[in-house]
Simulated assay, not measured.
Amino acid sequence: MLLVSIAKRHGGVDVRVLQTAREFARRGVAFRVAVMAGSSLHEALKAENLPAEPIARGRGDPRIALDLIRIARDMDANVIDGHNMQSQYWAVVASLGRRFPGRVATVHSIYREEHPRPGKRELREGALWLSHWLGFRFIAVSTRVERYLTGTIGVAPERITLSWNGMEPLGPLPPRYDLGAETGWPKDTFVLGMIGRLEPVKGHRTLFDAMARLVAAGERRMRLVIVGTGRDGAALEQIVRERGLAEYVHFAGFRSDVTAVLEELDLMCLPSISEGLPFCVLEACRQGVPVLASELDGMSDLFTDDGTIFFTPSGDAARLAERLAKLIDDRDTLHRVGTAAKGFVETELGIGTMIDTTLAAYAGAMRR
């Protein structure tokens, strides 16, 4: 198996690829991960001595296709699996130069919603169209992604495998993240968290709007820690200053100790415009941290409002502010939902099921 994750060198780790590599190694599955040299994923794979093939080129260098063909030939790969837009383009080109018995594209999100601008939207979706036309099998990480592939890209349902993202058991926690010492926030602070890329699709602006409403109404206990990097970072920091939220919002940048960050949170927020099934939600649930998220297809197919998650309408700052105001003073409900979410993820969204469905998709691709 050749897993391809050609992502930004300074972006976050592709959690699904890293987890798949760990489990493949544990099960004795022969594989390698083609990855950008020096990227966060490359460093994580190296740290765990997992098979990685670093590619020391720019993401747009056409020689990447030749690198993938060489790697596949050296290991006699029978499956190639592209895990993001760039990876899918290069997997398509590589498959023209080498006949892979199994060709797969794993789709984590709705490309046209993440990149709605004309031109960029078509560029992103082009990777899926080409994969479709060349007979790739698709892995969808949620029902929302599955419906996107059938309804927008036109992929036949029998060529799609639904494989929910899954979580490994929680291991030992890293050293404590002393958020209070880093920020100087009061001890009675109610800490919200957002973890992920700093991109418009994640909905930071909606949360800022909701927080500004609450501050204007006299709420002073709430603070927000934002973990992650991205192209929207400078603009978001500017908005925080302009809205008078500088003392309420802390940008922590990229952190590898996500489990330690989660230990500091009272509530995880994900006011996204579009999502597949984000790992940050599953990671929070695994630690019993309650989650307040936009009610989007995919997540709402799995989680229940006020049962295993809290939902608000996407893009509605007023409703988000109302829900936050109630939850800040309802610790019992937060604990109840966080505990239920933890049990749900442990029993229904384990890593074993994710890997079993992934391998089933690979087997199906080789039978096409």
Rank of each mutant, 00 (worst) to 15 (best):
Leu198Met: 08
Arg231Leu: 02
Glu113Val: 07
Arg9Val: 06
Asp356Pro: 03
Leu296Cys: 07
Gly298Tyr: 03
Glu182Val: 00
Glu237Ala: 07
Gly171His: 02
Ile226Ala: 00
Ile80Leu: 12
Glu242Arg: 14
Lys46Tyr: 09
Pro62Cys: 10
Gly307Asn: 08
Arg137Leu: 11
Ala341Gln: 08
Glu146Tyr: 14
Val258Asp: 00
Gly338Cys: 12
Tyr248Gln: 15
Val225Gly: 00
Ala361Val: 02
Ala56Glu: 15
Glu122Leu: 12
Met222Tyr: 08
His10Lys: 12
Asp14Asn: 15
Leu267Val: 11
Cys280Trp: 02
Ala140Lys: 04
Thr152Pro: 02
Arg99Thr: 12
Ser5Phe: 07
Leu262Asp: 02
Glu263Cys: 15
Arg176Met: 13
Pro271Ala: 10
Glu53Pro: 06
Gly315Ala: 06
Leu207Met: 10
Arg70Ile: 10
Leu270Asn: 01
Gly119Pro: 07
Leu134Val: 14
His250Asp: 09
Pro271Ser: 08
Leu96Pro: 08
Gly298Lys: 06
Tyr89Phe: 13
Asn78Ile: 10
Ser131Ala: 15
Pro174Met: 09
Ala94Gly: 06
Val107Tyr: 00
Ile6His: 05
Ala94Leu: 08
Gly343Trp: 13
Pro116Phe: 09
Asp61Cys: 03
Asp332Gln: 13
Val261Trp: 09
Gly97His: 08
Arg241Thr: 11
Arg144Val: 10
Ala216Val: 01
Ala34Gln: 03
Ala252Glu: 07
Met1Tyr: 11
Arg144Glu: 09
Arg59Phe: 07
Gly233Asn: 07
Glu322Ala: 15
Val289Tyr: 08
Glu264Asn: 08
Asp232Leu: 00
Phe254Tyr: 15
Ser272Lys: 04
Thr143Ser: 15
Met167Arg: 15
Met268Glu: 13
Leu123Asn: 10
Gly119Phe: 07
Ile71Pro: 00
Thr106Arg: 02
Asp257Gln: 03
Tyr248Ala: 15
Glu264Pro: 01
Asp356Glu: 15
Glu146Trp: 14
Ser274Phe: 01
Leu96Asp: 10
Pro290Trp: 02
Gly97Trp: 10
His204Arg: 00
Ala363Trp: 06
Gly196Val: 10
Gly233Trp: 04
Leu302Ser: 05
Arg27Phe: 13
Glu346Trp: 13
Glu23Phe: 08
Gly196Lys: 01
Pro271His: 03
Glu242Ala: 14
Val201Phe: 02
Arg27Thr: 11
Ile80Thr: 06
Ala252Gly: 13
Thr304Lys: 14
Glu199Ser: 05
Gly315Cys: 03
Arg213Val: 03
Arg32Cys: 13
Arg32Ala: 14
Leu2Gln: 13
Thr189Asn: 06
Arg26Ser: 14
Val17Ser: 03
Phe303Lys: 04
Leu45Ala: 11
Ser272Val: 13
Arg368His: 12
Gly203Val: 00
Val249Ser: 05
Asp316Met: 13
Arg103Asp: 05
Arg368Tyr: 06
Gly350Val: 04
Ile71Ala: 01
Arg22Val: 12
Ala21Phe: 08
Val92Phe: 14
Ala246Pro: 04
Gly135Leu: 05
His132Phe: 11
Val17Gln: 03
